[in-house]
Amino acid sequence: MAATGRTRGAGGAGAWLWRWRRNPLRRGSDRLEAWLLLGTWALVLLAGVLGGRTVAGAVAHALAAHRAESQAARAVLTQDAVRTPWPRSEDGGGGVWTQVRWTASGVPHTGMAKVRPGTKAGTAVTVWTDNSGDLISRPATGDQARAQAAVVGALAGMGAAGGVLVCGRLLRRRLDRRRMEAWDREWEYVGPQWRSMPG
Rank of each mutant, 00 (worst) to 15 (best):
D134N: 15
A15E: 10
T54E: 07
R53E: 09
A34K: 00
Q148L: 14
W35F: 12
R74I: 00
V127K: 13
T84P: 02
L77A: 04
Q148A: 15
R173D: 04
R174C: 01
S196W: 05
L175V: 03
R27E: 10
V164Y: 06
G52K: 01
V166K: 02
W86S: 10
L43K: 02
G122T: 08
V100W: 05
M158H: 03
L175W: 04
C167A: 15
T141C: 03
D184E: 14
R174P: 03
R88D: 03
Q144H: 08
G118A: 05
L50S: 08
G92F: 05
R26V: 11
A104H: 15
M197S: 12
V107N: 01
R88P: 03
G92C: 02
G92L: 04
T98E: 07
S196Y: 05
S105K: 14
A150Q: 06
A160D: 02
T54P: 04
A13H: 09
V44H: 00
H61S: 06
G162I: 04
A47K: 03
G12K: 13
R169C: 04
A68W: 00
A64C: 02
R19E: 00
G163T: 10
L155G: 02
S29V: 07
G163F: 08
G191S: 12
A62W: 02
L17V: 12
D130A: 04
R138N: 06
A147N: 08
G133L: 05
L45D: 00
T7G: 12
P117R: 06
G142M: 07
R177I: 00
G111S: 06
T78M: 10
A3L: 14
G12T: 11
G39H: 06
R27Y: 05
A13L: 15
R116C: 00
V151R: 11
R53Y: 01
G122R: 13
G118K: 04
L170G: 03
L25M: 10
W97V: 02
E33V: 15
T98I: 09
R172Q: 09
T110S: 13
V152F: 02
V44M: 10
A72I: 01
A121I: 09
P192T: 09
V59P: 03
V100L: 03
G191Q: 13
I136M: 15
R177G: 09
G57V: 00
G157Y: 00
A124Y: 04
P139W: 08
W86L: 13
D130P: 09
L155I: 12
A2C: 06
V49I: 15
D176C: 00
C167W: 11
A62Y: 00
W194D: 10
L46D: 05
G159C: 12
Q148Y: 06
W41I: 11
M1L: 13
T7W: 14
Q79F: 02
G106E: 03
P198S: 12
K120Q: 15
P198W: 12
W41Y: 07
R88L: 15
P192D: 09
G133E: 03
Q144T: 07
H61F: 01
G133T: 06
R174E: 07
G52Q: 05
